[in-house]
Amino acid sequence: MNHHQLEKDIEHLEQVIARISAEDRIPLSYWRNRLARVQSADLVPSQASRIRRLNEALQALEARTK
């Protein structure tokens, strides 16, 4: 994944995860998979930090659904 696409994907995930809920049409598992795909890329430290925050936010959402 190239740098520009990676940044766009992270930005998109930041926007979406801040606004979704467990009741949305798109299941949380979809966003978990998208996050995992971005997480597997070669990340610079600032990107890795952003991914950690996204992961924590998504985990909190997932915990509320259980």
Rank of each mutant, 00 (worst) to 15 (best):
A22N: 13
L35N: 03
H3T: 13
L13M: 05
Y30H: 14
A60T: 04
E7F: 11
I20W: 01
E7Y: 12
V16Y: 07
E7S: 14
L54E: 10
E14W: 11
Y30I: 11
R64G: 09
L54K: 15
E23P: 08
D42P: 02
H12G: 02
I20T: 06
I26K: 14
L61H: 06
R19H: 09
L28T: 02
S49G: 12
I17F: 02
R34S: 13
T65C: 13
A60W: 02
S40C: 08
V38K: 00
R53I: 12
L43R: 00
A22I: 07
S49M: 11
R37F: 00
I17E: 01
A18I: 09
R52F: 13
L13I: 04
E62T: 02
R19P: 06
A22D: 15
L61V: 07
D42S: 08
Q5E: 09
L6Q: 06
I51C: 05
R50Q: 09
R52G: 10
P27A: 11
K8R: 15
L35F: 05
P27H: 06
R53Q: 13
Q5T: 10
W31P: 02
A60E: 04
S49K: 15
R64Q: 09
R53E: 04
S46P: 10
R64N: 07
W31Q: 02
S40P: 05
N55F: 02
I26V: 15
W31V: 05
S21E: 14
E7T: 11
R19W: 02
A41P: 00
W31M: 03
I20Y: 03
V16I: 14
P45M: 07
A41D: 03
A57M: 10
S40I: 03
Q5M: 12
E14G: 04
D24A: 03
N33E: 15
Q15N: 14
V16G: 02
L58T: 00
A36M: 06
E23D: 15
N2V: 08
N2E: 09
R50G: 11
W31D: 06
R32A: 09
M1N: 10
R50A: 15
A63L: 05
A22M: 10
I17Q: 00
L6K: 10
A57C: 09
R19F: 04
R19D: 12
T65K: 13
I26A: 14
